[in-house]
Design a protein around this nucleic acid. Structure first.
Length: 343
DNA sequence: AACGATTGCAACCGCTCCCTT
DNA sequence: AAAGGGAGCGGTTGCAATCGT
């Protein structure tokens, strides 16, 4: 495995290390340290360049190197830190004891990147591929699973089954809400991809966001989750928040209209009847479906758990109201897929 | 069984950063 | 302040192993 053996112009050996070379390197560093990598090969009796020795030591021979498969926790950590730091492999490695930047980089490129692509997340931006709305809606089952997981996180439940992609799914859920929010918050409706497809009207009803309830009722728990996940998307008044906790200390200051990036409550609004149908995350239930009057300051009202029946009912509404068969087909297909929530 | 395609990963390359002089 | 050199980082390469036909 690895590169072919060979020599560079200086006659130094390249390619895979032999056991004898490894032993020489380990022996020398254990006895003398690795003060000067350039001088080390000669001192250790190795026909290698200092760079090669350093790489071999750092990535393979150094004590404490953890080998073997990555755990779910490690995967989760990598995804979270990559969303924050990008390809800063050494920084990410600093948070994974025993793992090297090279190993993490390889694992990202061969496993995690593909995993995120499979669930419709751009591994570079950690956002849904916004140019592909078919994929976005096709990922609805995962989004709803993420919503369920997210709710369980809010409840600090230990029962929910999560894997390393859960944070990514949650982020996807978050991002989809952002996309939906942009259809209504954007002053120029045509600039919104969803608006372009639906004449500023998704499924015949407009969506907008109301985070007052969410932060009013659950921000303590929510901030805990975000603190753990280091959500880079938290932006208040177009200013990035370094400490996610800060963004929730004064929920009143959150400006929903100006800030469609803050994690909101998804609200399905009927402009005709001035009613809101709210799909919301709330304590003790998976997802709630709420009807209330336009007065958002009084988020009272008839809550009921959002179940498969509700989704089918929702699909029925879409049937009636969506004039765009493109979206209709997508939603119907999504509705027909397996429901991820417990009944 | 044979062979081409794909995958995984160790190692190299070239660039940037930072420290020293 | 500028130059030189070493260390470190991210991107890329190339080969062995594995998979698919």
């Amino acid at each position: 495995m690895g590169r072919s053996p060979g020599c560079d112009e200086n006659g130094l050996k390249k390619g895979p290390w032999t056991q004898e070379e490894d032993e020489k390197l380990v022996d020398h560093i254990q006895n003398h340290g690795h003060g000067n990598w350039k001088a080390l090969p000669k001192q250790a009796g190795l026909n290698r360049c200092g760079k090669s020795c350093r790489l071999r030591w750092i990535n393979y021979l150094r004590p404490g190197i953890k080998r073997g498969n990555f755990t779910e926790e490690e995967e989760e950590t990598i995804i979270n830190f990559h969303s924050l730091l990008g390809n800063k492999w050494s920084s990410i490695a600093g948070n994974l004891p025993g793992r090297t930047d090279n190993e993490i980089k390889n694992y990202w490129n061969t496993h995690l990147r593909k995993k995120l692509l499979q669930i419709g997340i751009d591994p570079v931006t950690h956002r849904p591929k916004r140019t592909d709305h078919l994929n976005l809606l096709a990922a609805l089952p995962q989004l709803l699973t993420a919503a369920a997981n997210f709710n369980s996180l809010l409840n600090l439940s230990q029962n929910v089954q999560m894997d390393a992609t859960t944070p990514a799914q949650t982020r996807l859920f978050h991002n989809m809400i952002q996309v939906l929010s942009s259809t209504n918050n954007n002053n120029n409706p045509s600039s919104s991809p969803l608006a372009m497809q639906t004449n500023n009207n998704l499924f015949g009803q407009s969506f907008y966001l109301d985070n007052q309830n969410l932060f009013g009722q659950s921000h303590q728990n929510f901030s805990h989750i975000l603190e753990e996940n280091h959500d880079e998307d938290l932006i208040v008044s177009n200013q990035t928040i370094d400490d996610p906790m800060d963004s929730f200390s004064s929920p009143i200051e959150m400006n929903v209209q100006d800030d469609h990036k803050s994690l909101p409550l998804l609200v399905l609004a009927s402009s005709v009847e001035s009613k809101q149908s709210q799909m919301m995350i709330k304590n003790n239930d998976i997802v709630h479906y709420q009807h209330c009057h336009h007065d958002t300051s009084n988020p009272s009202s008839s809550n009921s758990t959002f179940t498969q029946d509700h989704l089918q009912s929702w699909c029925g509404t879409i049937d009636d109201e969506a004039s765009d068969s493109y979206w209709k087909d997508i939603i119907e297909q999504t509705c027909s897929e397996s429901w991820p929530f417990p009944e």
